[in-house]
Simulated assay, not measured.
Amino acid sequence: MDFELNTPRTDELGDAVAALRSWQSDDAPLQLHPGDLGWYWQLGVEKTAASVRIWRRDGEIAAVGFLDGPDVLRLTTAPDLLHDEALARRIAADLDDPERGVLPAGKVNAEVPNGAALHEQLAETGWDTDEAWTPLRRDLTAPVEDSGLRIAVVGPEQAELRAALQRSAFEGSTFSVERWQAMASGPAYADARCLIGFDENGDAVATATVWSAGPGRPGLIEPMGVHADHRGRGHGKAICVAAAAVLQELGSSSVMVCTPSSLTGAVATYRSAGFAPLPERFDRHRAA
């Protein structure tokens, strides 16, 4: 049976989250994580559903795509279909036909796991490589050291402080209490925690959100940031260590993060927190 493409209804989003959760493995290359959808959930369930594309075969989910913007698709497949040429051909055809409602005509990018058959299919139809990304992973089988920060897990009463930290750490961010509430209402957040780090003076200096995919599977940090007034003091490293400790408590086997390779400072921060770089991943780009 051929693969079928659809945009899920809001009540089908839980199926996509469950599939992404089950596909996470320390043996697999970095791929789309349930936390990626979970963080986007801040925009509401309707917008999240509109951003997702699902490929099914015989009713089973074979691949999940996430439009992280109108012209950027982040995509992964079921592990046993990573090298499936028929699925790769179908997805490539869908990406190159704007009438199928995945990507528009013109310049677009696709994020595809390393080693996927889709890379070859896209190359054959004229897609080149684009921005380099550095995935990093920290194993969580050994005890995690103390971060040096006092860590609070965010609940509704800390949501305003969490939102303010996000806006300070990321210029142009419009994160708000309402967005935190929307994110926290999604199914992916059942396995997530928002963290705030306080220094020795009691100042809120850093924040991170961690997403578990369940016991024995890799978790994700998305996002991590340091307050603009408290940079250059090691708080980025510290909040990453704290994030690793929380994911270990949730049963995660490892913690993953990915950052543009051009952000050498970010790569250095993660490495200082015990994260080891993995092989670079390159986006696929269609120029026209």
Rank of each mutant, 00 (worst) to 15 (best):
S254N: 12
N6P: 00
S22G: 00
E131L: 08
I54Q: 02
A192E: 00
F170E: 14
L136R: 10
E157D: 12
I151D: 06
S254F: 08
K47G: 02
T129H: 13
R21N: 00
L118I: 07
I54D: 05
S212H: 06
S173P: 08
L250S: 04
P8G: 02
G214Y: 03
G59W: 06
E46H: 07
E249D: 15
A62Y: 05
D27V: 06
T76G: 08
V52K: 06
D146M: 06
R281N: 11
I151Q: 07
S51E: 06
R53L: 00
R21M: 00
I221T: 03
H235V: 02
L82N: 10
W23F: 02
T134D: 06
W133V: 01
H230D: 06
Q248E: 11
H285L: 14
V210P: 01
L5S: 15
H33I: 05
L43A: 13
R56D: 06
Q121G: 11
T48Y: 02
I239L: 05
A28V: 08
L165Y: 04
H33R: 00
G148Q: 10
S261F: 11
L37D: 03
L165G: 07
A123S: 14
R89F: 11
A243Q: 08
A182M: 12
A184W: 05
A190D: 08
Q31K: 12
L220M: 10
V112Q: 10
D283L: 15
S51M: 04
E85V: 12
A117K: 14
L95G: 03
R21V: 01
T10V: 12
D2Q: 15
I151L: 09
V72N: 15
G236I: 06
H83L: 13
L250K: 07
L5I: 14
T48S: 09
V241N: 03
P70S: 15
A117E: 15
S176L: 04
